[in-house]
Amino acid sequence: MQISDERKIRLMYRVEPGCLGPDGANHIEDFCRFANKHIKSPHYGLFVFLPRYDKQKDERQYSVNSRNLSQVQAKAYLNHFDIDIDNFEEQLDELLVKAIDLYFKR
């Protein structure tokens, strides 16, 4: 099933510099560019990885067509594709860990 980009769920994932170790602040911008290039988005969504400098902002922000979704709305959207949001987020976290390992091995 083909979904137009404006109908896809967009996940803005703000990555903590600390995830990259004690000198993560020196790598976070480059790592996010790396992650955006190497972590493939699913057919129903778009991933965007950004540094998380502001702790006031959520680590994950879902949206569709530039409209932010609550966690309940995001869960309902993913349920439409028979996807459990908790499993989805857990798998994405695992992809992020693998991307961090790949980033430092380049």
Rank of each mutant, 00 (worst) to 15 (best):
V15K: 01
G24D: 04
V48I: 15
H80A: 10
Y77D: 03
R14W: 05
K57T: 07
K98P: 00
M12D: 12
Y53H: 15
R10Q: 11
D5Y: 02
Q2R: 08
G24M: 04
A35G: 06
D5K: 08
F47D: 02
L46F: 04
Q61D: 09
V64P: 00
D5R: 05
K105V: 07
N36T: 06
H80R: 10
L69Y: 04
Q91K: 13
R14L: 05
I28C: 03
R67W: 06
D5V: 05
V64E: 01
S41R: 02
Y44R: 01
G24R: 02
M1S: 10
H27A: 06
L20T: 03
R60H: 11
S4H: 10
R14C: 06
L69A: 06
M1R: 05
S70R: 09
R7T: 02
R106T: 12
Y13L: 08
Y77E: 05
D82K: 11
S41Q: 05
N68C: 11
Q2S: 08
K37V: 07
Y44N: 01
S66W: 12
V97M: 11
E89T: 11
E59Q: 15
I85P: 00
D82N: 11
F104L: 07
R52A: 04
Q2P: 02
R60L: 13
Q73M: 12
A25R: 14
M12H: 11
Q71C: 09
F49W: 05
L20V: 06
K98R: 13
D30M: 10
Q73F: 03
E90G: 08
E29A: 13
Q2C: 03
D30Y: 08
C19Q: 11
I100H: 03
D84T: 06
D82V: 03
I9E: 00
D86T: 14
K57F: 11
E94P: 00
R10E: 05
K37E: 15
K75H: 10
Y62W: 15
I3A: 04
S4A: 13
L46P: 00
K37Q: 14
F34W: 12
N26K: 15
Y44D: 00
